[in-house]
C-alpha cells in the first residue's frame, strides 16, 4: 500500500517537473496545468473511441498536450512576461477555468473508465502487492523525465535551454532566442502533463475533476522540492505519495490531502526556496 502510494507520488513528481521546465526558462508556471492533464486524458480517450490503436494514441495524446502548452504560452504568458508583470498567474488560472468548462460541456461531467492493455491484477513481490499497471506508471514517469533530462544535458538545444535559465540576456547574445526557448519549455511541459494524464487515467478514471486534487499535490511537491531542483521532485513526490497512503489508512481517506498541504506550508516556513532549491541573490 505504501508502495502504491509512492508510485502515485511519481505522478505528482512528473507534473511538478512540468512546472520546473517552464520556471527554469521564464520564471513562470502554468496554474492551469491540471486542466492540461485532464484535457489530454479526455482527448486520448476520444482517440481510443474513434478506433485509434492504443500505442498510436499515446503520441497523439502527447502531441495534443504540446499544442495546449504552446497555446498557454502564446495566450497567457508571453505578453505579461514582456511587461514584466505577474499577470500570467491570473491568466493561466483563467485558461484552466475555460478548459474545465469546455471539458464539462464537450465530454460530460461523469467519470469514465480508460481502457488499458496492461493487466491490473495485483502481483506479489517480496510480500508487497503491486499491479503491473502501477509499475507501468512508474516506468512511464521515469522514462519521460529521463529522456527530457538527457535532452537537456546531451544536446546543444538542451544546453541552450539551460543557458536561458542561467542568464537570459547572455543567452540572447549567443544567438539563442529566449522566446523560442520559453515556447519549447511550455511545449515540453504540455507533453509532460499529457503523459501524466495518459498514465494515471486507467487508475483514476477520466472526468473533469480528475486532476483537481492531483495538481494541488504536484504544486506542493514542486514548491517543497524547489522550483529549480531537477530530480528533487522525484524524492519529494515519492515521500508525499507514501505519506498520503499512510494518512488515509490511519485517519480516513478524507484526510489524504492534508499531509501534502501541511508539508508545503511548513517547508515554506523553513526553506522558502525549497528543500533542494538555491537561494536567490537580490540585485540593485
Amino acid at each position: 500500500m505504501v508502495v502504491s502510494g509512492a508510485l502515485m507520488g511519481l505522478v505528482y513528481a512528473l507534473i511538478a517537473y512540468g512546472f520546473q521546465l517552464t520556471f527554469a526558462t521564464s520564471k513562470s508556471i502554468n496554474f492551469g496545468q491540471g486542466e492540461l492533464v485532464m484535457l489530454s486524458a479526455f482527448f486520448s480517450l476520444s482517440l481510443l473511441n474513434w478506433g485509434v490503436p492504443y500505442w498510436l494514441m499515446i503520441p497523439g495524446g502527447l502531441l495534443f498536450g504540446v499544442v495546449l502548452g504552446l497555446v498557454v504560452e502564446r495566450a497567457c504568458v508571453r505578453l505579461t512576461l514582456e511587461q514584466k508583470s505577474e499577470g500570467w498567474i491570473l491568466l493561466t488560472i483563467i485558461f484552466g477555468l475555460l478548459g474545465f468548462s469546455a471539458a464539462e460541456n464537450i465530454w460530460g461531467r461523469d467519470d469514465r473508465p480508460f481502457p488499458t492493455p496492461i493487466p491490473t491484477e495485483a502481483m506479489q513481490f517480496f510480500g508487497v502487492s503491486i499491479t503491473p499497471l502501477e509499475i507501468s506508471v512508474a516506468v512511464g514517469v521515469l522514462a519521460v523525465m529521463g529522456v527530457i533530462e538527457l535532452f537537456k544535458r546531451k544536446t546543444l538545444l538542451g544546453k541552450a535551454f539551460e543557458a536561458v535559465s542561467a542568464d537570459r540576456d547572455a543567452a540572447e547574445l549567443m544567438g539563442i532566442s529566449a522566446r523560442h526557448t520559453i515556447m519549447l519549455s511550455y511545449g515540453l511541459s504540455g507533453l509532460v502533463a499529457a503523459m501524466a494524464g495518459i498514465l494515471i487515467s486507467p487508475i483514476t478514471t477520466v472526468g473533469p475533476t480528475m486532476a483537481t486534487a492531483l495538481i494541488l499535490k504536484a504544486f506542493a511537491v514542486a514548491v517543497v522540492a524547489g522550483l529549480d531542483s531537477g530530480f528533487g521532485v522525484v524524492l519529494v513526490g515519492i515521500f508525499l505519495g507514501a505519506l498520503e497512503s499512510l494518512t488515509s489508512f490511519y485517519l480516513g481517506s478524507g484526510w489524504r490531502e492534508a499531509p501534502g498541504l501541511i508539508l508545503l506550508i511548513m517547508a515554506l516556513a523553513v526553506r522558502p526556496n525549497g528543500v533542494f532549491g538555491k537561494a536567490s541573490i537580490r540585485k540593485v
Binding site: 544536446t155 546543444l156 544546453k159 541552450a160 539551460e162 543557458a163 542561467a166 542568464d167
Partner: peptide, 22 residues
C-alpha cells in the same frame, strides 16, 4: 555574464550555437 551553472566547455559550445547542429 558567463552561464554559472554550466561547465566551461558547455559555455564555449554555446558560444558557437549558431554554427552547430541542434
Amino acid at each position: 555574464k558567463v552561464f554559472g551553472p554550466l561547465s566551461v566547455e558547455d559555455n564555449l559550445l554555446l558560444g558557437a550555437y549558431n554554427h552547430l547542429p541542434m
